[in-house]
Amino acid sequence: MNIFRLAGDMSHLVAILILLLKIWRSRSCAGISGKSQVLFALVFTTRYLDLFTSFISAYNTVMKVVFLALSYATVYLIYMRFRNSYDSENDTFRVEFLLVPVIGLSFLENYSFTPMEILWTFSIFLESVAIMPQLFMITKTGEAESITNHYLFFLGLYRALYIVNWVWRYHTEGFFDQIAVVSGVVQTIFYCDFFYLYVTRVLRGRGKMSLP
């Protein structure tokens, strides 16, 4: 554990909490892609199956359980509790276009051809593209509430901090997880355009912003 990894995990947690609290307080999930949230729940589910097989640390276990619980709570709020406010007409990204290649790739490129490893690889690849329905939705509607932008900012920050963590771990302990690093870098690139707009528009007080 290093400071970058810890800060990355905390940004990830903050992002998830921002989204959950926004939906809970406004009693509405307008502008939120339910599809992205289902994909993130699927990411956590397939990645954290090792909760049952290996113990790494109390921190690790607690965070996994928290992420799982929060992601399912978010999906519940969107599709059950506040489903009347769910903007399904603009959440039209074809998820199968992500799932099919990601499933295929996780069978081809993995550390070990076992169900657990294939599912772990699937979760890593899927996480790198899971935000695309949300970004697609913002592009389609032309704008997002600033709170949605804060959510995306912290998600992107989490990815950026993980990259710094990998550079740190490579130099200090020779750690290099090729699958995680390559897909992590790809994932972070998706946020770059958003980051630029966030800094230039949201932080300068306009509140709302639109993606080109």
């Binding site: 090792d50 690790n60 070990s112």
Partner: peptide
């Protein structure tokens, strides 16, 4: 198990 990496990141 042998040969399988331990994934210690979240």
């Amino acid at each position: 198990a042998d040969g399988e990496p331990l994934h210690d990141e979240l």
